[in-house]
């Protein structure tokens, strides 16, 4: 009987707290939000706003370029590498897209946008983490693309995003601008610790392929 009561209470409490976690902000969560967070985080965190309230209606193309010091001692700026387009090509015709192709860059960029203000200044710990993360992704991907060339070293990287509206369906008669919105981030220098592991990673992956 005691066991039954304990389990019944635990079940109701858990379902109630998870419900409050996924529900919109309301009277109860305003008063007791900390209790909900205390229970739900870290392991019961969830987000089921799948394509809701509205599905994303823009293609965000994340691109990166680098400043490379060449073997000859000069500084060279590479062209833009469209990393999202690379992902898109990897996903095209692929029945089992990898998380590295579908989520890695896409979510890293979302993370960056969510943890930065409109002037690209980092907000809190997550802001700085996301910058380091993007730096490391840039190095990994530039290395795979052979951007630095033989003997070259990537010294700085720069990101930009081009956001293009998905053309509305032809039957809707709606018009949206087809001009992309470009957001260009400042140049970031790349420290040795950003570089270290990801270069090794690329070598291994290359060897395995």
């Amino acid at each position: 009987m005691v066991a039954l009561a304990v389990v019944a209470v635990a079940v109701c409490a858990h379902i109630g707290l998870v419900f409050l976690h996924v529900a919109p902000s309301n009277t109860l969560t305003k008063q007791h939000g900390d209790v909900v967070d205390e229970w739900v985080f870290p392991e019961f965190e969830q987000n089921w706003k799948l394509f809701a309230p509205n599905p994303l209606q823009q293609n965000v193309s994340v691109q990166v370029r680098a400043e490379v010091s060449t073997a000859g001692g000069e500084i060279r700026t590479t062209g833009w590498y469209d990393l999202s387009a690379e992902d898109g090509r990897a996903i095209d015709g692929n029945p089992l897209p990898s998380h590295t192709q579908q989520n890695e860059l896409r979510r890293a960029w979302d993370f960056f946008v969510a943890s930065h203000d409109s002037d690209d200044r980092p907000v809190g710990l997550r802001g700085t983490l996301s910058e380091t993360y993007l730096r490391r992704i840039a190095l990994l991907r530039l290395d795979r693309d052979g951007a630095a060339g033989p003997g070259g070293v990537v010294e700085r990287v720069q990101y930009r995003s081009r956001t293009t509206n998905v053309e509305p369906p032809p039957w809707s008669g709606e018009k949206v601008s087809d001009r992309p919105i470009v957001r260009e981030l400042p140049w970031w220098s790349v420290s040795a610790e950003n570089r270290g592991a990801s270069a090794g990673q690329a070598e291994r992956e290359g060897g395995a392929a």
Binding site: L56, Q57, N59, S61, D87, G88, Q102, V166, E167, P169
Partner: peptide
């Protein structure tokens, strides 16, 4: 219509 036209 929209998710079907997202590159990802």
């Amino acid at each position: 219509y929209y998710p079907l036209h997202l590159d990802y």
